[in-house]
Nucleic acid binder design. Structure first.
Length: 564
RNA sequence: GCGCCUGUAGCUCAGGGGAUAGAGCACCUGCCUUCUAAGCAGGGAGUCGCAGGUUCGAAUCCUGCCAGGCGCACCA
């Protein structure tokens, strides 16, 4: 895996030259001795403002009360240019330093893509740090819904991004297979089974009336028969519950697999109880003096660690609250050797962050090592119409139904396109539209077009020599070719940036930019039918684009079609 | 009442101290006898929710307010 990308090497070189210019300026007396700015460069909004720009001069001007443009010209005057890619330097606006580069650096940058192929985009920004990413973790009491589908897309893509950015990532699904809700699931299934047998039975209060238990009841009768009904209550409920849970989990696994998502681990809450880790956590918190008895319950003094209020661990009826296994679970994650934990939760769980972090701190773990991301709600639309999502009426759309209707690629694209914390309107009509109105196809089409060029080229005879060592790179001079290459060169940094900021939507934006640049190139420049040298060079650039698009789509979990 | 998220073009949303605020879709005008027109080039379209403040510079940071969504259990 490469240390850095060619682009970041170029940037680092420019930054160090600017730093050197400031040092020289100090020696010459152009700048005061005490300035020590952090030099940052970025890509300016307009091409006439150069390839890179820096605002250091304005920052220094603030520190020194000098005129920003004077500071800028002091830096520019002292900027060492020998053996650099810098062609020209301008001072613009209130004191920006605009740097114009030659295009020679693009050649090694493109050769890097060719060489790394499917690995292009990877970096070791993360330094091999071990991250556990827990997401979806829906209760096994019903089918997955569209918010789960959003969390699945975001989590899976974020995991892929972190992996590519040099972290060691594990994807984990936490199955809440204990507690009252699972008992209610079992009792609800029992009621359905009895109804199938013509007996008088109703879904218990707070139970699960959805249709999916009707199907499960049939399966139960087919596989287990009715004998279970004669067992004593406790045993009977256990049978129904465990049957229901295992089937629901299987069903969830299957949908997620259809979505292209494979977890490294499905972690069952029950395994914590079997090993006594829930009791252990209470013991540890008590030993450390973070618990107290009050009103017949055992409390965790989470306010010590910044939580709004203390939390009950053991209710006055002697049963633990949900938070106990959750604390044990997060402790277990740390004990398994992960350096950093990321939980992706729904918006209804934001109140939960404080108590969870407090508990980790109370157990001696750094609260910063636990990071909670909230993925906001999804509103399903059909055009202008809101699709009703009432859970009670059973009329809500499951993840299965969503995938069946719009397909995996469109679903993932739409979920990833938006920043995770923004509320999302998901237009199902738009998502399944097979036309240019649907943004999914914009990127895929670029990929398919490239594949088509190669098909065409092969039909015409043996391909010309077009690898990095064969190509006359200097023939790639059209503005559309240059800007395409610049974008391709930025991929590793884009991946690392999207991973660090936990924003898969940045990857999607990048894919759109690549597609735009390619479509523009495709329209302006013919690849085939030009002279041999030019065709070869453009085939080379096309293949590089295809590699980048393919890699980006793979990170997003969206397929890269060869034809459309 | 308190907390979290959101408010930017007709619609869905990027951008989260820097230059003339962007994209996709929708709308208008051009571009297919040559590699896929699910494309390209161009155009119109915006008081960045409102009001103050900090700053050389605010859509971006701070405060208050308004609007929408979601939470605030000895439920999970």
């Amino acid at each position: 895996m490469p240390e850095t990308s060619v682009l970041s090497e170029v940037k680092a070189d420019i930054i160090s030259r600017i730093e050197k210019a400031i040092e020289i300026g100090k020696v010459k007396g152009d700048l005061p001795e005490y300035v020590k700015p952090d030099v940052k460069i970025d890509i300016p909004p307009r091409p006439e403002q150069g390839d890179f720009a820096t605002s250091v001069a304005m920052v220094i001007a603030r520190q020194t009360e000098l005129d920003p443009r004077a500071v800028a010209s002091a830096i520019v005057k002292n900027l060492p240019l020998e053996d650099s890619h810098i062609l020209r330097v301008d001072i613009a606006g209130p004191g920006f330093i605009n740097l114009f580069l030659d295009v020679a650096w693009l050649e090694p940058a493109m050769a890097r893509i060719w060489k790394e192929g499917p690995a292009y985009g990877r970096s070791n920004a993360g330094g091999g740090k071990k991250i556990l990413l827990e997401f979806v973790s829906a209760n096994p009491t019903g089918p997955l819904n569209v918010v789960n589908a959003r969390a699945a897309a975001v989590g899976d893509c974020l995991a892929a991004l972190l992996d590519a950015a040099g972290y060691r990532v594990a994807r984990e699904f936490y199955v809440n297979d204990g507690g009252r809700q699972v008992e209610l699931l079992g009792r609800s299934l029992e009621a359905r089974v009895r109804q199938k047998l013509g007996q008088e039975a109703s879904i218990p209060e707070g139970g699960y009336p959805g249709d999916y238990l009707l199907e499960l009841a049939d399966e139960f009768l087919r596989e287990k028969g009715a004998a279970v009904l004669d067992l004593p209550e406790e045993e009977r409920v256990r049978e129904f519950s465990s049957f229901a849970v295992s089937r629901m989990v299987e069903r969830q696994k299957k949908v997620l697999l259809d979505y292209g998502l494979k977890y490294d681990n499905w972690f069952f809450e029950s395994s914590l109880r079997e090993k006594g880790e829930d009791k252990k956590v209470i013991q540890l918190l008590t030993e450390r003096g973070h618990t107290y008895q009050s009103e017949g319950a055992l409390w965790f003094r989470s306010t010590t660690f910044g939580d709004d209020k203390d939390r009950v661990l053991i209710k006055s009826d002697g049963t633990p609250t949900y938070i106990v296994p959750d604390i044990a679970y997060h402790r277990n994650k740390f004990l398994r050797g992960f350096d950093h934990l990321i939980d992706i939760l729904g918006p209804d769980h934001h109140g939960y962050i404080g108590r969870l972090k407090a508990s980790m701190q109370a157990l001696g773990f750094s609260p910063d090592a636990l990071e909670v991301l909230i993925v906001q709600t999804v509103r399903l639309m059909r055009g202008k119409e809101v699709v009703k999502m009432s859970k009670r009426g059973g009329g809500f759309i499951t993840m299965e139904e969503l995938l069946e209707e719009v397909g995996k690629d469109a679903a993932r694209f739409f979920f990833l396109m938006r920043s995770p914390e923004s509320h999302l309107d998901f237009d199902m009509d738009l998502a399944k539209l097979q036309s240019n109105e649907n943004p999914v196809y914009y990127v895929q089409y670029a990929h398919a077009r490239i594949a088509s060029i190669f098909r065409q080229a092969r039909q015409a005879g043996p391909l010309p020599a077009w690898g990095p060592n064969e190509v006359e790179f200097d023939l790639l001079v059209d503005p559309s070719e240059i800007s395409l290459m610049r974008i391709l060169a930025a991929f590793p940094e884009e991946v690392a940036g999207a991973a660090e900021s936990r924003q898969p939507n940045r990857l999607l934006k990048y894919m759109m930019d690549v597609a735009t640049a390619f479509h523009s190139f495709y329209t302006r420049c013919r690849v085939l039918g030009e002279n041999k040298e030019l065709s070869s060079a453009r085939l080379y650039l096309s293949r590089l684009t295809q590699i980048v698009l393919g890699n980006a789509l793979r990170l997003a979990g969206i397929s890269a079609p060869e034809s459309m």
